[in-house]
Design a protein around this nucleic acid. Structure first.
Lengths: 249, 249
DNA sequence: TGGGAGCTGTCGAGAAGCTGTCGGACAACT
DNA sequence: AGTTGTCCGACAGCTTCTCGACAGCTCCCA
């Protein structure tokens, strides 16, 4: 398998909890092609249909024919700006939910207010897994009130993505944001082994320079919190990476 | 699950008394599409059926075929004005309750007279949670004189949405309007963790620019009032947001 | 119309908690 | 026994949170 590939290498076949019969259709709008492609690639890996647009014009046109279920929209576009695109989407009657991307220094102020309809936003540079998590949440909520809580479970380890409660058996764990994200990633991919590079690429912001042993460190901290009771669930695959699963063999 | 329920994620026990089987049908009439959509979207996230109209004509026509249970009506419309629409609705025999929207400087006085029938009104710009709260109240009242009180409860913290009484155990708390709204929002969403952006976006008026630590501040004030006795109920999820729930273990 | 009371948001300092770097101990494979 | 990879304690820098102080504002009442 490709060690450079950003994507997880589990066979696409792991059906997530928010399963639906049809593929989720995602439109990614960003004038920076690498970013747009990054998002689209990750989404496809989750089994979604994804298309990208690099301008506002293109976005509006594509939305019309592709009919996405959800949109990722950069607010800094060369032609029409993000808000313009949003207007035009809405005016054409689409109630499609949107997750916005914005630069930290940029329009962050004007963005306030966007979580209201159920839309959400993320500040660049973001972590891919965080974006995917938000997309899933927004999708789940837009599906109506009957949606299920999203709870990840591996053996006696559970993670409730709404309450952010993580439990090993009965014991409630207190995780820091980074620990939480790493664990969520590993649990989602379980029982597939993830390389350290993959973990780094998905959980840390793209562009993160850390050529270090951060991943090992966070895993180490996680272990202390969740593996000090009972059989270990985080396993090292020497020379390769980590995996969360019930002790095999 | 209850179509009027605060949120999609109610664990058993949080289903309000004014439960009904069918989805609430809401008609939103506002000539400003973003506002109309905002309201419609929020309502849909609560599990309601919502449609929007941007003119008086459209509104009257839609009301006929959609048969809403409740109407949100902007009084400043380009063609027929809000009062005209109301007249025509009433004359066609509908007793559908209405919540009016009006500009601050506008016709507030004349509106006051209209709220006697159980209708209500709100001044623009409003906060979405406040609007939803009023809609729920009006609906409950229109369900008949024997309507049940709506009381939110988390552990020994109770909030009576009719009397606005908030109690921690026996102790009656005196909350300011903002504190009340923030607490209501958190209680409604409990035990889901809300980000500060979500709180800001739902509880403050749309268009509020406050890029500050208002939310933190209000939470801090709330804590002093309700968490100084007994176990804390408002919890900080560092790097993420706040949640109201009984301390888990 | 003026005065007072209470509410709200800004500022900022201090506290608390999180994160990544370094480096040495340790373990696993050859 | 050497080599490579992993684990994790300690620490410093940084981010985030908390909350006192204060000033503008609104609302109410005389």
């Amino acid at each position: 398998m490709c060690s450079l590939c950003a994507g997880p290498h589990g066979p696409p076949g792991r059906v997530p909890h928010y399963e639906r019969v049809e593929k989720v259709r995602l439109l990614v709008v960003d004038d920076d092609p690498p970013i747009a492609d990054l998002v689209a690639t990750v989404a496809r890996y989750e089994g979604w249909d994804a298309v990208t647009a690099n301008t506002g014009e293109e976005a509006v046109a594509l939305a019309g024919e592709f009919r996405p279920d959800i949109v990722v929209l950069d607010l800094m576009l060369p032609d029409v700006d993000g808000f313009g695109v949003l207007d035009r989407l809405r005016r054409s009657g689409t109630m499609v939910p949107v997750v916005f991307l914005t630069a930290r220094d940029g329009v962050a102020d004007r963005v306030a207010g966007l979580t209201r309809g159920g839309d959400d936003y993320l500040i660049k540079p973001f972590a891919v897994e965080e974006l995917m998590a938000r997309l899933r949440t927004v999708l789940r909520r837009s599906a109506g009130p009957a949606f299920q809580r999203s709870v990840l479970r591996v053996a006696d380890l559970t993670m409730d993505e709404d309450t952010r409660e993580v439990r090993r058996g009965d014991r409630l764990l207190t995780l820091t944001p980074t620990e939480y994200e790493v664990l969520r990633f590993l649990m989602r991919k379980s029982p597939t082994v993830m390389t350290k590079a993959q973990i780094l690429d998905h959980v840390w912001e793209y562009g993160f320079g850390g050529r270090s042993n951060v991943v090992e460190l966070v895993v180490s901290r996680l272990r202390r919190k969740l593996d000090d009771t009972g059989a270990p669930l985080i396993h090292t695959v020497r020379g390769f990476g980590y995996v969360v699963r019930q002790a095999a063999e």
